[in-house]
């Protein structure tokens, strides 16, 4: 038996998430421009960019894996999105969906790297090496923040976490989880690929990093993937620490709040080098994360 309601909800959520993700990317560019006292592009600029990339007349391919990488990344982003309880839609759910989402959000980067490595460009190789090192560095504080959260609420289910926060107040109101949120927010900056952790796609250094060979329709898929990813990550943050949401508008307000913190941090700080980033991740966020875990025991 086909569950038509579920299918319709999935399609609706996907369309909404892609559209809002593009708008988030537009907000990011516009807000950065306003901070630098520029006018900035219109909010729908990423949609125009994606349309233009789709309208390119040719696309260079470097073989099957190169084509497969962006599709793999997009698929992982969509899968992560469907496990997150977005407002009152809980589409897929399992007993430990927190772990599933937390690690599905990491998979897209691997997909991009898979494709980038097969292109054979030296800049891609440097970008991939940096990306993998950042991922290794951020796993430790990321895991500690999630452990603190899980220990406090005593459950792996995202929907239960949302329900418990509804009953007992948001996660941020608990002192230990406030520390965990700070740790998660630092990691979040790296997950979005914003400064000070935009070492992967450092545009002036290694000319876009893994994305250097992608153009045309491949880049359009990567843009769409980034839109879905940004929506899923902000929604994940809102669900874990800001009490989830009962409708899409409430979720949108919380997502934009999370996004603006990231944008403000990104527009102030310059870029770390890779060794500084790894040292930073293994020092301050890790210490804070351990304190958060000890407080929740």
């Amino acid at each position: 038996m086909i569950d038509w309601k579920l299918i319709l909800e999935v399609i609706g959520i996907l369309l909404y998430a892609t559209f809002m993700g593009f708008i988030f990317m537009g907000i990011e560019r516009k807000a950065m421009a306003r901070i630098q006292r520029r006018v900035g592009p219109p909010l729908y600029q990423p949609i125009i960019d994606t349309l233009k990339l789709l309208g390119k007349k040719e696309s260079i391919s470097h073989g099957f894996i190169y084509d497969f990488g962006p599709v793999f990344a997009l698929g992982a982003s969509i899968a992560a999105l469907l496990f997150i309880p977005i407002a009152n839609f809980q589409l897929f759910s399992s007993n430990a969906d927190l772990i599933v989402v937390a690690y599905l959000l990491e998979v897209p980067m691997l997909g991009i790297m898979l494709g980038a490595m097969s292109s054979g460009n030296p800049f891609s190789a440097v970008g991939v090496q940096r990306g993998l090192l950042t991922m290794v560095a951020m796993q430790l504080p990321y895991g500690l923040a999630l452990i603190a959260l899980i220990q406090h609420w005593g459950t792996f289910k995202l929907s239960e976490i949302v329900a418990l926060q509804g009953a007992q107040g948001w996660s941020v109101t608990v002192p230990a989880l406030l520390i965990a949120m700070i740790v998660f927010d630092i990691v979040f900056q790296a997950m979005l690929g914003l400064e000070p952790f935009d070492i992967i796609t450092a545009p002036a250094e290694i000319s876009m990093g893994p994305m250097v060979e992608y153009g045309g329709k491949h880049a359009a898929i990567l843009f769409t993937q980034h839109a879905v990813q940004i929506f899923a990550e902000t929604a994940f943050f809102a669900v874990l620490f800001l009490g989830g949401a009962s409708n899409l508008l409430e979720l949108l307000i919380k997502q934009i709040a999370v996004l603006f913190i990231a944008i403000f941090v990104a527009s102030i700080y310059p870029r770390f080098t890779i060794d500084q980033a790894a040292k930073f991740f293994w020092k301050w966020p890790t210490i804070l994360g351990i304190i958060a875990v000890l407080l929740t025991v």
Partner: peptide, 22 residues
């Protein structure tokens, strides 16, 4: 590119990769 003439309001963006450039 900076505040005075800001070409990003027309959607123009400096892009270091020739594959994506127009």
């Amino acid at each position: 590119a900076t505040a005075r003439y800001d070409f990003e309001r027309f959607g123009i963006m400096p892009n270091p990769s020739p594959r994506m450039g127009d």
